[in-house]
Structures are given as structure tokens and as C-alpha cells.
Design a protein around this nucleic acid. Structure first.
Length: 230
DNA sequence: CGCCAGGTGGGAT
DNA sequence: ATCCCACATGGC
């Protein structure tokens, strides 16, 4: 059993699964002249909301909430701001933790408004200062909405790398992130954005198909390069 | 039915 | 620093 390097793992996953094309909102990541197009403000905002709503929640449930917000023409910070928290919570009910998440969205709206008035750029640091936005949500927003080269580490990433034997099972977020980012340090910023986007999506797909809570190691495409530390 | 889902903040130790 | 828990709906 030989453990792969992270670029090799990326290649192996890429071969095992077809390109995923995230963020999973219709049309966002379709190619334009072989590179991703600039997103509209509305698309960016929708991705930010999705990043908050999907915290510890299946994406399927988030889609319903986003559809409800779209239907009420609320995929816009100024319009959403005028809803009180109770009404907002009701609209996003399907995402679970809806009262908490309504509060988080409210905090994010305050952040956007405040940022505009002092025209601060979006950085990891100032995102992390928002109540309800932790490392994964911040990095999802930076990578998927703002195309900044940060790796989004999630429970699946840690599960897969932990089981394979590439990191300790209880490795913390920042360690795993720096490991993954260092592995592609020689790439250009734009290449990193593409790789980090796709790699994260492949981790999710692999975790759903084989590296589940109860893993299906027998049929797993990475079977021969895994320590199987379940 | 039970388990799990692309986490985070708060409080106790 | 590090554990433990509340937060909640929907799909399988």
C-alpha cells in the first residue's frame, strides 16, 4: 500500500469521477473561453447565502430555501434586509437550524452594509469576524464567490485524508488547509482556484459514494492507496 | 423508525 | 486550548 501525494490523489479522484463543476447553482461554472466568467452580484450573493445555509445540512434542503428566496425576489442584500428575522427564518426553514441561520444571514447583511460604507475588501479575516461565519463558510465564500485561492476543508476532506492516512484523524482545520494549499504552491492563482474548486467537489463526491460514514472499501476506486484507518 | 447531512458559537473544564 | 452541547429539517 503506497500513499499518494496530494496532487496524485487529486489526479486519481479526477480519473475516478467526472469533473463536478461546482458551485452547484445553474450555469455559474460553465466555461467561457476556457475560463470561469466573472459572477454577477446576484450570483455571488446567492453563493454566500448557500454557504451559510449548507452548514451541517444536505444541499438538497438548501436548494429549497434558495428557491423560496428567489421566488420572493430576495436574492439581493437590500431587499433581504427589509425582512424581519421571523419571516426570513420561515423562508429558509427547509435548511434546518432556521432561527440560527436567519440570525447568521442578518449578521452577514450587516457586514456587507458596513463594508460598503468603509469600502473594505472581502478578506478571510473580516469574514471570520462575522457571527455565524467560521473557517469553512468563510473559505467557501472566498473560493466559490470571490475566486480567491483558498482550500475549503470540510468534514469529508478530513474523513478521507484521515482514513487514507495522509493526516491525523483529529487534525485541525488550519493544518489540513495549509497542507492542501502547499501542495499546489507552484501553480498560478487562477490554476489554484480551479484545482481547489474541483478537488473539494471531488472529496464530497467520493465521500458520498464510497468514503461514507460506513465506508464501502471493497468497491472503492482508491482502495489500493488507502491505509483504511476507519 | 434511526441515522446523517459540505458547521458554528457558547459555556465548562 | 479542548471538549461538549444546542441548534432542526428532510432524505434515505
Amino acid at each position: 500500500m503506497d500513499l499518494p501525494t496530494l496532487p496524485e490523489l487529486y489526479k486519481n479522484l479526477f480519473k475516478a469521477y467526472s469533473p463536478q463543476g461546482w458551485w452547484p447553482i445553474q450555469g455559474v461554472y460553465e466555461k467561457h473561453n476556457n475560463h470561469i466568467r466573472v459572477l454577477t452580484e446576484k450570483e455571488r450573493f446567492e453563493i454566500c447565502l448557500g454557504a451559510i445555509l449548507t452548514q451541517n445540512t444536505a444541499w438538497k434542503n438548501v436548494e429549497k430555501s434558495l428557491a423560496a428566496l428567489q421566488k420572493h425576489d430576495l436574492l439581493d442584500p437590500q431587499k433581504l434586509e427589509r425582512r424581519d428575522m421571523q419571516k426570513l427564518a420561515l423562508l429558509i426553514r427547509s435548511s434546518g437550524y432556521h432561527n440560527q441561520k436567519a440570525k447568521k444571514i442578518r449578521a452577514f447583511l450587516d457586514f456587507l452594509k458596513n463594508k460598503k460604507s468603509i469600502s473594505q475588501p472581502i478578506t478571510r479575516e473580516n469574514l471570520l469576524s462575522v457571527w455565524g461565519i467560521g473557517p469553512e463558510t468563510a473559505d467557501s465564500i472566498l473560493l466559490y464567490a470571490y475566486h480567491q485561492p483558498v482550500f475549503v476543508v470540510d468534514a469529508y476532506t478530513k474523513r478521507i485524508l484521515g482514513r487514507m492516512g495522509l493526516v491525523e484523524k483529529d487534525a485541525d482545520y488550519e493544518l489540513v488547509r495549509s497542507l492542501l494549499e502547499s501542495a499546489f504552491a507552484s501553480k498560478t492563482e487562477q490554476e489554484k482556484v480551479k484545482i481547489f474548486n474541483e478537488f473539494h467537489a471531488l472529496f464530497v463526491e467520493h465521500a458520498k459514494q464510497y468514503c461514507r460514514t460506513k465506508p464501502l472499501c471493497e468497491q472503492c476506486p482508491l482502495n489500493t492507496s488507502c491505509a483504511k484507518r476507519i
